[in-house]
Design a protein around this nucleic acid. Structure first.
Length: 422
RNA sequence: GUGACUGUAGCUCAGCUGGUUAGAGCGCCGGCCUGUGAAGCCGGAGGUCGCGGGAUCGUAGCCCGUCAGUCACCCCA
């Protein structure tokens, strides 16, 4: 039991074959983003605490209780990145990117939040996300959503739905907030304790309540759609139209409300019905006010963040487990002399063949080494013993068909192997 | 931060109402088998029973605390 030196709470180690699934997902992400014309941004894993306080919102849960904050040796307050949007905006601002026109950026990497771990929730988790800045047009919202949709489609994740909503802007949202307060306040006593608090701080979030005693009042609450100003309504219609053009199915869900303070107009979530309580795989929206609030030019922007842990969880529960393909060659030497003779070939194969080349240095018998070949999932074995050595041969064994084939051993071996590559 | 459940070998778990040297399967190492693989048989290594207190003649099983895991709440990816 590794009792003392264990990974910190809420963090995970990844080994093969799981780490291979991460590599594959990341490779797909890079290629997908490239096809949509997005370029990768990498930012520091920690930033000055002030960035998140200003960017995410002082009263947000993230800032109030979930940040990994520490003072560095110079007495500066630093925070491990709890989300990517603020750092991306900071970096773009710092290097004057917004002055150069619209920007399409994407990122992949860890975030840190001090929370109680549970299914689909970790203290270190990983996000893929994109930020499309410089377009106020609804087509940009749809582009961002379509990119996420394509990734889900590529993995054929079933049971995922896109929930779409508009939460208005600084003109119409306050009016709706007042209407919600007016609706719920007379029934304050019958609301759940959590919702009583929500009514104070963020009435919109009340719509998202899971408490059964709140349900009835939520059903009869005024709809935000009726309060949208003409501009917001037109934008929302435009998003829907562009989604239809892109062939992305959606459901309008008036209860979708994002937790971060900076969202305006469009908000959306991709939720899976095969996950636990944390069933949001990907979420995002428009944040037209964030760039300027961080001291930049008035720049509209829209983006999303996708949780890689949750994404892979959804892939896994979709149950498309493919068998590990046999790949590579187990180089087997029997005896010290054969081993020394085999080493140059191993080195050459590793440089030239493109296959994984496995070798055991344990001075084991043939039988034991073949078992190791199985464990390595090798496709072939190259066997060199005393006999072969004196006869100038090496045996290539196909581990699937269990057939042997003699090859010349020496300078010609590589060539002979090259011929059997399909 | 709140709540519920769990914590015995690398992994999955047994261990009956507390009673002498804590078990199995898988995995690992070796042998049967001078050189042809997923099986079989035999043997071996590997355990502070999460950790710390307490109660008891005595506990891995009881009590308290603590840490960790799992799931849910708050909130979020």
């Amino acid at each position: 039991m590794p009792s003392k030196l264990a990974a910190p709470r809420g963090t995970q180690d990844f080994f093969p074959p799981q780490s291979g699934r991460w590599q594959e997902l990341e490779a797909r992400i890079h290629s997908l983003a490239r096809r949509y014309g997005y370029g990768e941004i990498r930012t520091p894993i920690f930033e000055s605490t002030e960035l998140f306080v200003r960017g995410v919102g002082e009263t947000s849960d993230i800032v109030e209780k979930e940040m990994y904050t520490f003072d560095d040796k110079g007495g500066r307050s630093m925070t491990l990145r709890p989300e990517w949007t603020a750092p991306v905006v900071r970096a773009a601002l710092q290097h004057g990117l917004f002055a150069q026109g619209p920007q399409r950026l994407y990122y992949v990497g860890p975030i840190f939040r001090y929370e109680r771990p549970q299914a689909g929730r970790y203290r270190q988790s990983h996000q893929f996300g994109i930020e499309c800045a410089g377009y106020a047009q609804p087509e940009a919202d749809a582009e961002v959503i379509a990119l996420a949709w394509d990734l889900l489609q590529a993995y054929a994740i079933a049971g995922v739905t896109l929930k779409l909503n508009s939460i208005g802007d600084e003109n119409c949202r306050p009016k709706y907030r007042d209407a919600l307060r007016a609706h719920f306040f007379p029934h304050l006593q019958s609301l759940s304790a959590d919702s009583q608090r929500r009514l104070e701080r963020n009435p919109l979030r009340l719509l998202d309540s899971k408490a059964p005693e709140d349900r009835e009042l939520i059903e009869s609450a005024p709809a935000l759609e009726d309060f949208l100003c003409a501009e917001c309504r037109a934008h929302f219609d435009g998003v829907k139209r562009a989604l239809e053009a892109a062939g992305v199915p959606y459901t309008v869900d008036p209860h979708i409300v994002r937790g971060l303070d900076y969202y305006t107009r469009t908000v959306f979530e991709f939720v899976s019905d095969s996950l636990g309580a944390q069933n949001t795989i990907c979420a995002g929206g428009r944040y037209d006010g964030l760039v300027s609030s961080l001291g930049g030019p008035d720049t509209p922007a829209v983006g999303f963040a996708l949780g890689l842990e949750r994404f892979l969880w959804a892939v896994e529960s979709a149950g498309t487990s493919e068998e590990a393909r046999r790949e590579g060659v187990q180089a087997i030497a029997i005896g010290e002399k054969a081993l020394q003779a085999l080493l140059p070939l191993v080195a050459a194969l590793r440089r030239a063949s493109g296959w994984p080349i496995f070798i055991d240095y344990g001075d084991r018998k043939l039988l034991a080494q073949l078992k190791i070949a199985d464990r390595n999932n090798a496709r072939y074995a190259l066997i060199l013993g005393e006999q072969e050595l004196t006869e100038g041969r090496i045996v290539l064994r196909d581990l699937v068909t269990r057939t042997d084939r003699p090859l010349p051993f020496g300078k010609d071996t590589l060539e002979a192997l090259g011929e059997m590559r399909e």
